[in-house]
Simulated assay, not measured.
Amino acid sequence: MDMYNFSAGPAMLPREVMKKAQEEFCNYRNSGSGIMELSHRGSLFTEVIERAEQNIRDLMNISDDYAVIFVQGGASMQFCMIPMNLLPAGATADYADTGVWGAKAAKEAKLFGNVNLACSSKETKYDHIPAFGEWKRTAGAAYLHITSNNTVAGTQYHQFPEVIDGVPMLADMSSDIMSRVINVNDFGLIYAGAQKNLGPSGMALVIIRKDLAERTPANVPTMLRYNTYIENKSLFNTPPTFAIYMLALVTDHFKAMGGIGEIEKINDAKAAKLYDVLDSSDYYRSPVARDSRSNMNVVWRMPTEELEAKFIKEAAAQGMTGLKGHRLVGGLRASIYNAMPMSGIDKLIAFMRDFEKNNG
């Protein structure tokens, strides 16, 4: 039986990547050692980390104005690193409160300086991205922080806010990084936990405009300074070598698929199929405004919580796991990141239709 993992993260990885990693796990490039056993300063790993960075630059069309670095601690570490490095004393940072993770990022930033919530959809349970005309942004803000895709609520920006001169836009793209084409030049900094679209958990990919890293105050600890990673090519200390290796394999795979443009077409088609089922039935209900629906995390509710529990149990028995909604909101959630094949969507849809027929 084919298994499909719909978990929000750590999420499924491309099967081809997992097989490649399995083949090389104990003997990487005939070295007699696995990649986790090799020196991070040796030639074999140097090739891996350089390939990982170049793949990211190629796939996302990143210029030399930006550094690409690998930082331990996942996206949550960036919640504090960003204000420590980029929020000067006396300045104000704007945050968009469009979900649980955006709220957590703003909470951390308040420990280091002034924070203005430019917008919030909390009162409506984060069911939409507020219209940009409603935002209240700070003149001369140190930066604007957004969360491009909200895994808990199932919302996503389908356009981005206007970039104001002198106010860099920073984005947590943990759950939709490399799922669609974006213009990196619109952002001052992009970060993403690896465990959804890029590889294993425990590491964040950070893409930062080099001039911003010069803002860092002198009292920020060495390991929390962006320039430490930039100047040492993410090798100041021993980096998460296996996570970087897996990211290199995943991005090799993305290139083989034809790049982000081709991946975006597949993701659009996957999401459209699943939302068509939700919209054609009163049995399944999407709580998300149509213009804010995520292509990565599709959430829905059913007539009763008992039916939801039964759905999750029976789906797992048929090889579809990870469909339980986040503990804060309940319901169901299908996370359909880049690695989820169309066959997984088709299997889920067939199960949904049969379940409604048998339990409606």
Rank of each mutant, 00 (worst) to 15 (best):
Y191T: 09
A192G: 11
G193L: 08
G193T: 10
G193Q: 09
A194F: 15
Q195I: 00
Q195E: 14
K196T: 15
N197V: 10
G199E: 05
P200I: 03
P200E: 05
P200Q: 01
S201F: 01
S201L: 00
G202C: 02
G202H: 02
M203Q: 10
M203K: 00
A204P: 04
L205Q: 07
L205D: 06
V206G: 06
I208P: 06
I208Y: 02
K210V: 05
L212T: 05
L212G: 04
E214D: 14
E214S: 12
R215N: 13
T216G: 01
T216R: 01
P217F: 03
A218T: 14
A218C: 12
N219S: 12
V220P: 06
P221H: 02
T222W: 08
T222A: 10
M223A: 13
M223N: 13
L224P: 00
L224C: 10
N227R: 15
N227L: 11
Y229T: 03
I230A: 07
E231D: 15
N232F: 02
N232L: 02
K233Y: 08
L235P: 00
N237C: 11
P239A: 08
P239R: 03
F242P: 00
A243F: 00
Y245C: 07
Y245L: 07
Y245T: 08
M246K: 02
L247A: 09
L249F: 01
T251P: 09
D252G: 06
H253L: 01
F254R: 07
G258F: 09
G258C: 09
G258R: 09
I260W: 04
I260T: 08
G261P: 07
G261D: 10
G261M: 04
I263V: 15
E264K: 10
K265Y: 01
K265T: 13
K265S: 11
I266R: 15
I266T: 14
I266N: 03
N267A: 04
A269N: 12
A269H: 12
K270M: 05
K270G: 05
A271C: 11
A272E: 15
K273F: 02
K273E: 13
L274K: 07
D276Y: 01
D276E: 15
D276H: 12
V277T: 14
V277P: 06
V277N: 04
D279H: 13
D279K: 11
D279S: 11
D279T: 04
